[in-house]
């Protein structure tokens, strides 16, 4: 399944990575090289195989319902590129 330029555009948009039009052919060719190589997996007989989502083989642990965190707004805001008082600030979002 080779990627066409429109798919490359769609993917970079989904990933929110700016890509100049001039770069599309290069990225397209790189991605196609990798995807083409990945497609060797089509040789594998996967009939009846349950997918393995992770390497951890155990039960999901749970936390108690207790307030043990938060309450440090200055710490969560200290690395913000832009803050406005107690808020993070971003370019205005129009809904």
């Amino acid at each position: 399944m080779a990627l066409d330029p429109a798919t490359v555009r769609r993917i970079v948009t989904l990933a929110r990575i700016r890509l100049e039009d001039a770069e599309v052919p290069r990225i397209q060719s790189e991605l196609n090289g990798i995807i083409g190589w990945i497609e060797q997996l089509n040789e594998v007989d996967i009939d009846g195989v349950e997918p393995l989502t992770g390497a951890a083989q155990m039960a999901l642990k749970m936390r108690d319902d207790a307030v043990t965190d938060g309450g440090y707004p200055d710490k969560v805001l200290s690395n913000a590129p832009e803050r406005a008082g107690p808020f993070y600030a971003v370019p205005k979002v129009v809904e």
Binding site: D69, G70, G71, P73, K75, V76, G85, P86, F87, Y88
Partner: peptide
């Protein structure tokens, strides 16, 4: 208050 009930 804003961002007071926020953990990392």
């Amino acid at each position: 208050d804003p961002n007071t009930q926020v953990s990392f």
